[in-house]
Design a protein around this nucleic acid. Sequence first.
RNA 1: GCCCGGAUGGUGGAAUGGUAGACACGAAGGACUUAAAAUCCUUUGGCUUCACGGCUGUGCGGGUUCAAGUCCCGCUUCGGGUACCA
Length: 917
Amino acid sequence: MEYNFGEIEKKWQNYWKQNETYKTDIDKNKPKYYVLDMFPYPSGAGLHVGHPLGYIASDIFSRYKRLKGFNVLHPMGYDAYGLPAEQYAIQTGQHPAVTTKINIARYREQLEKIGFCYDWDREIRTCEPDYYHWTQWAFIQMFNHYFDIKLQKALPVSSLVKAFETTGTEGIQAYCTEEFSFTAEEWNSKTEKDQQETLLNYRIAYLADLKVNWCPALGTVLANDEVSEGLSVRGGHPVEQRVMRQWSLRVSAYAQRLLDGLDKIDWTESLKETQKNWIGRSEGAEMKFKVKGQGEVLEVFTTRADTIYGVTFMVLAPESELVKVCTTTEQAANVETYLAATKKRTERERIADRRVTGVFSGSYAINPVSGTEIPVYISDYVLAGYGTGAIMAVPAHDSRDYAFAKYFNLPIIPLIEGCDVSEESFDAKEGIMINSGFLNGMTVKEAITAAKKYVAEQGIGRVKVNFRLRDAIFSRQRYWGEPFPVYYKEGMPYMLDEIKLPLELPEVDKFLPTEKGEPPLGRAKGWEVDGFPLELNTMPGFAGSSAYYLRYMDPKNDKALVSPEANQYWRNVDLYIGGTEHATGHLIYSRFWNKFLFDLGVVCEEEPFKKLINQGMIQGRSNFVYRIKDTNTFVSLNLKDKYETTQLHVDVNIVSNDILDIEKFKNWLPDYASAEFILEDGKYHCGWAVEKMSKSMYNVVNPDDIVEKYGADTLRLYEMFLGPLEQSKPWDTNGIDGVHRFLKKLWGLFFKDGNLLLTDEQPNADELKTLHKTIKKITFDIENFSYNTSVSAFMICVNELFTLKCSKKAILEPLTILLAPFAPHIAEELYHVLGNEGTVCDAQFPICNEAYLVESSVKYPISFNGKVRFMLELPADMSKEEVERTALANEQTIKQLDGNSPKKIIVVPGKIVNIVL
RNA sequence: GCCCGGAUGGUGGAAUGGUAGACACGAAGGACUUAAAAUCCUUUGGCUUCACGGCUGUGCGGGUUCAAGUCCCGCUUCGGGUACCA
């Protein structure tokens, strides 16, 4: 009987499906374990061989945990809303729901072939009404809550309203866009509309006029993490700044908790570091500078209060409201010109062009500590969105201020003893203060503390913590997303009654903006409730992915996002595997979302993902052919330098071990049908390079083809064998034969020439040692996600058993179970061949018995000055002294010593002997 | 610029401070076969030697140590993230 993987895999995949082997329910008699993959966006291209890498890793761990007696939740679903389907719809008229459905079906088919242990009954799709029902529900809760600064948690807006009605803003510590101050009387006399407008200032989901990233090509705004270097992450289109009235989530209110939570979770340091930087906490002081001859005050934020004596000018962001106030009539024209020029520049241009620009406002501010008068400038190197949108410039100790001062010829006052600021600023926070009044003689650190204290005591300002993390813009001017459960009355937003959820996405005639420039939902007929118009924006991509891990716990619940029972059993994700590209987007948003739900008491764990592993990227390995210029002749790699050639990508699927299949090449593209070749030893050798896996490089490998040719078990093993899970590595199908041979060899331990070789004989010491050594190694490797070395360990084990000609049940049965997480199909087949009933998934993971591993003797490497010269086999229990004596007495040692006496002898029992000459 | 990762044969990679290159791929040679496929055996870091062996070797330069791919310091270089964040 041959190893017929095709038949075996089909057979057991059917069996698992029929027997609901992977169906999961709450079982309070077993400890739970929740393994989650970052769910995919189902693109039209289908899966390539890089996508399943993380899924295979998590699948192995899930199966392992199950064999260890855990009740494992391992679900899969689809992040089904998104731009590509909508772009495609705009081009073709095909409804995005239709393409999405087709793509999902294709993904499902591809995933099923690989033999994952997903509980498909729990599958979710973010674009399904019974799923986005709860996305809309969460949004309503966010609208109805505000963040209390003192308690550091979300509270109902209704209690805030009660406070306003009785005591106004007195004593209120609510996280808000703008500090308001009003009495109860003032509140009560406001109109409904005014009250609603005021409340938006506090709500966690709020509507506000914001400077947003507008992407004209996509016709929508984008969140900060969806923009990179001034271009949209999806599509690479230019992005510009624009002020628009948009929904936002007050993520920044949770900044401190998002930061603190990082200490409690098992993520890689680099990922935590990325989040820390994105949150960007900085401690400093907010200080007030009076504008000369006016009542106005400029507020600035600084982390270097100690440099107050070195402030030689102020700078306002062009968008700052204070620009108007500070601009004098004489300077008005210049300022106007500058503002116009700045506005025209896109984010990208500003990043690319680092030239100093700016304009004098005409006003002067007064240094609150030294009393000196300093000019106020306007420049776009100051950002409106961070701090107060205004800075005190200390050119001696800040490189940006320095460049500005040099350009405008402003004074530069050094504040640190011995620093040279003639060529560049001294940015380091070290040294002794000079030119700084009462701070003179202090170290920088002391001065920062002293200055902050002084500022607070003198009423010049206050100590403040600032965060870089900004609120998440939540509106998209697109069709293919969750509709907001929002309608408008007198221009004010109101939430739909929860009973009316889900608010389903309406049909439209075209997926384009309306003639008036409204989003596509403006085309929907009857898009209103009780005569009030519904919101025309839809939610962004991260809306649906922010709480999907909760929905898997209870995916069919139509009363709640998740029942308390399910949530308290499954709690949170124990192991989350996915790409590092979500470090600042999804992984911040879902932590925020989860914390909010935690505050509401809907979920019982504050952090959603306990342990997180980033799988590395699978890169492509491209192949090249070399065409001689102006001909249709192709020259083999090592001869190409004799000609003038053009390097062309060739489909890696018609190349094997870098040798081109010439017939397939001729049939590949019409141009090549008449191609001629200059070969080396009768073969065409291709060049190669590691590049991104993409269609245009012709280096995409489809897992279906691999499964077809080698089987799913081989694919699974080979993906793991490629290298460490977390590292990036190129996919090269060439090596796959090795793991396939391994499976055949394993099969060969069971069958030879169609006969079953299995025996009930008692295993001997060597066989037991091989088995238990492997059990130990595999257990350790799985726990440490070192799957590449486990595959090697399996190979070594089978090679040894092959040499021992071992076909004993007592050895092969535990080995089969050990292999089941990695290669479930062949393991299931062999488990039944061994005479078992049921499924290998419910077996018990073997336990290593150290007694079989004890060695009676040790081969000591005998080294001289650290260089190994020969081996000496000695009894394992020989004492240190005895080993030393025996080694020294050895004739090879005597030869090495050559009459000299050793200076020192190191004996590490069981390891090594080193003789120092 | 700043913050993270890496760098080991022709290739992917392995190595609690203790024999560098496990395990694979590829290559070369051989067995079986009419032939091919499949399978099996041998060799395979470099230099050197008929051989035993010797020398050398983990990006570069220092250091710690009886012993360094591994620890420390200083570079080079390649990836990834982030960027006027005051």
